[in-house]
Design a protein around this nucleic acid. Structure first.
Lengths: 301, 301
DNA sequence: CAGTGGTCTAGACCACGAG
DNA sequence: TCGTGGTCTAGACCACTGT
């Protein structure tokens, strides 16, 4: 019973998706079978099925209503997602049926700038490929993309042979290194004269700028990118959820903690005699487990 | 053993957070106790503990490494979050230790415009409160916020008494209706003369604009807001994850599905004799279970 | 190899919504 | 009251990592 491949939950999610797409699963009111029924039908435990449903819910395909049932989401053909889903511009365009192609492209091997090395979490004198290009939709420039990748992640041959506009797609296709997430910062910026020329806009026109670091599953940054988007051509959105961690106003004190036992941390002698409050500032970035999340919304007055 | 209140997992997450903050849980390398140890220490099952850790991981507080352990994230004092966490500007400012207060505020009761009614998913002639104000940091205007709320969600007394700058915080404090998520669209926009005057900028200066609809747990939209942010004062980011659903390039076929049984949907006779492929287009929005996710990144060439 | 996190199961009970 | 999704448990086995 070798497993290998995607998790059971993911397989189940895709099976359900198929069932929805073909119309075999949901009634015309969009109601899916109950969790018990689905789990039996798919031959998985209810826990696994729920994990699958969670994935589908998180991508917005279904909606769950306590005490009622699980429904197929309304809206256009099952297709998904906002900014929180990491995908390339090319994939986005293909998915939404829009023509897009690469305009002028400039690949250069050089030493990383200070900012780039910082963003990648690497010591300053590191060699990188810098890829700059314009993306067009029809004849109109709609985005200007810059990627900076350490040369040990991508070699020049691969880059020149397999590159068709997206570094992300290239890495995903190769499957190595395994990618996990991207930390993307958003801001508005006025077009510089150079950018304006490349994108055929007026200098000073507002652009949406995304600055991203791409991380592998083991926390290494492998791509630093800056992207400019001409307004009106793209619509980016995010689903913002109310925090699962924030206390529900007024704060609540232990009520179950009194009869259960969720209070073992600061009270009785710890099983692990750990150190004092000494702030963690050991300056080794070598086995740093994340190396670059954090510091998210900062305000500078 | 009445429960009431937050889930066990959430309590556990907060306990762990406390343990991290006080420095009692992690060694100076940031390594937390193993899941087995933690679950025993907190008196919860490992499954529940893992749910708690997942919440912490999702907010970026910890990093998990298969075969190694769970680590406290690097970065400044534990404090979190990007755009995917829904919080008010006031909360953000307080959290980051920045002074912020409301400038001129204008509350008006009127009939919703077509755009507003559409965004709220309500029939056109509906009465709303429109709240417009400038947010200042020190003396500098840093954001311009507009909220539109149906009058049946908020009554004038509450609005005038409890409003201190954030409609979101007002609703969260009241706890009713229960909020779930916000669908937020981002774009860059040049400041109009009016906006420029209110924010003491030059007309044409680039602004980041967030357009959001706020939804309750039962899928009703209760707030439509447009927010403009002066560049340089805020940093917004998003964590973009590689899709859990997308096949890992090349697609994979059943490999476990052959010995397990994840294939019950399109093959043998379904337990539920459901309808044909007839597209679901029944035009009733009444009991629509989501009414407003979807259509995310669209491109208009 | 031992120890860690990752996945999965079977079963239990609770909370919610509708008839 | 009944059926739904929501939470929790105890235990099992797997896959990854370091030694």
């Amino acid at each position: 019973m070798v497993r290998r491949g995607p998790t059971l939950a993911r397989q189940a999610a895709l099976e359900i998706l198929d069932g929805i797409r073909s119309g075999e699963l949901a009634g015309e009111d969009g109601l899916l079978p109950s969790e018990a029924a689905l789990s039996q039908r798919l031959g998985v435990s209810r826990a696994t099925l729920r994990e699958a449903l969670s994935q589908l819910e998180h991508s917005g395909m279904i909606v769950r209503r306590h005490g009622i049932g699980t429904f197929v989401s309304r809206g256009q053909p099952l297709m998904e997602s906002g900014l929180e889903q990491l995908e390339s511009l090319e994939t986005l365009a293909r998915r939404t049926g829009v023509d897009s192609h690469m305009g002028q492209c400039d690949i250069e091997e050089r030493v990383a700038t200070r900012v780039e090395a910082d963003a990648l979490g690497l010591p300053a004198p590191v060699r990188v490929f810098a890829v700059e290009r314009v993306m067009l939709s029809g004849e109109r420039p709609v985005a200007y993309l810059i990627d900076v990748v350490p040369t040990d992640v991508l070699d020049p041959r691969q880059l020149r042979e397999s590159f068709h506009g997206s570094v992300l797609d290239l890495l995903l296709e190769r499957g190595d290194p395994p990618l996990q997430h991207s930390h993307t910062e958003l801001c508005a910026e006025a077009a510089s004269p150079e950018l304006a020329r490349a994108m055929r806009l007026e200098p000073g026109d507002p652009l949406l700028r995304l600055t991203a670091q791409l991380y592998t599953t083991d926390g290494r940054a492998v791509d630093y990118s800056v992207s400019y988007f001409s307004p009106g051509h793209f619509r980016f959105h995010v689903i913002r959820r109310v925090s699962q961690l924030a206390p529900p106003s007024g704060g609540w004190t232990t009520d179950r903690a009194s009869d259960r036992a969720v209070d073992g941390i600061g009270k009785q002698g710890a099983a692990e005699p750990n150190a004092s409050d000494r702030a963690r500032e050991t300056g080794d970035a070598a086995r740093d487990p994340d190396a670059g999340d954090r510091e998210l919304a900062a305000v500078s007055p």
